[in-house]
Design a protein around this nucleic acid. Structure first.
Lengths: 196, 196
DNA sequence: TTGTTCTTGGATCGTTCGTTCCAAGATAAG
DNA sequence: CTTATCTTGGAACGAACGATCCAAGAACAA
């Protein structure tokens, strides 16, 4: 070997971040390669060379969303350590994120993917997302249980599953203009139904 | 006026029923006019003449789904009259519908529409669907309250909002292969958290 | 600088998209 | 039967789709 290759002329991580936003806002089916070319400023060649086809690019965007956006939120639930207050704090942040600011009305990329027809490459990420959120809630609920914050008879595992589904529904409905107050009503009802 | 027009050569309601199934299973973005032509056996002319463009056809399918599939389920909650048992019975039917049989893994057409980018013509139907389900739950919960089935401090309005979101999440996750047992765990936790 | 290899821009591929159009067919009042 | 009006099949439209291809450009070893 006498010569060596060119290196990438762009920041792959920055490009993926831009792609993530596109898929998050408009979904996989409504986002065209041309939209991605326009948003990233890259050429088709660079995109296909770096990421493969559209399905793999979408899977990479979901992976990024899960790792960079969902996981930190989930980790905060566990790190919080206050039991039920950690759950309440999570939903406060979630509702703010979903209903005001830059991403208001976007829902959650992963929640949305459940309703789209995600490519096979992304399917396992949906289960991973659900499992990670449930595990975080479960950790908080077990703290709550040992703090005697839970009503007698409340089963942490079932309650964690319930809170997980509630978060999914908050994500889903926030995309169609459900008001923050309305969503908050349900969250309050859930937490207070679990509390002692 | 001396002559009169031809009449339709096909059953409009039957065609719409077929279109509803397509949009339900694959979503609006992944369903092409060609798919609809193939499934109904109609020509493009007949479709556009009878329903207008794709967006209006989708809105008509959502309307049909809401009236013919959702409403009867909601009405059964109200007609049941047993209070909390009516809620449990609803979720039993829902889980069976979503997880086994002809429509297993399809989720709910209206729930799915929340994540897609529904055309303007269909947007108000999403709010109508949510409001109708919540009203049905509220009716059942008020019966439950007067039967003293509810735990002290449970607010029927908030609980109805919670159950509505739970149903949406069940619909959503059933589309991505969530197991019936897992979904049932959350439903059981919710109902038992509300019960006295 | 030369040689080799990878990356890049951009034209282009065939397909499918939603929609429109028109001639032919069907219907019923006159 | 004539005539007016609507419906129908099917070709065709321009635009957008995801994907591929290739010559030109860029980078590094020798």
């Amino acid at each position: 070997m006498t010569g060596m290759a060119d290196v990438k002329h762009f920041d792959e991580a920055a490009a993926l971040a831009a792609v993530e936003l596109l898929f998050w806002r408009r979904g996989i089916a409504s986002t065209g390669i041309q939209d991605i070319v326009a948003a990233t400023g890259l050429s088709r060649s660079s995109l296909y060379n770096a990421f493969g086809g559209k399905d793999e690019l979408y899977a990479a965007a979901v992976r990024r969303y899960l790792d960079e956006r969902s996981r930190p939120m989930f980790d905060r639930i566990v790190a919080d350590g206050r039991g039920l207050a950690a759950v309440t704090a999570f939903f406060d942040r979630l509702l703010r994120l979903r209903c005001v600011g830059e991403f208001a009305g976007w829902g959650c990329l992963v929640s949305n993917a459940n309703a789209d027809n995600p490519p096979d490459a992304a399917l396992s990420l949906l289960a991973e997302h659900h499992a990670a959120l449930k595990a975080a809630f479960l950790a908080a609920l077990e703290v709550a249980e040992s703090n005697q914050e839970l009503r007698a008879g409340v089963e942490p595992n079932g309650a964690a599953e319930l809170l997980t589904l509630l978060a999914y529904a908050v994500n889903l409905r926030s995309r169609s203009g459900a008001s923050r107050a309305q969503l908050e009503t349900a969250v309050t009802a859930a937490v207070s139904a679990l509390a002692a």
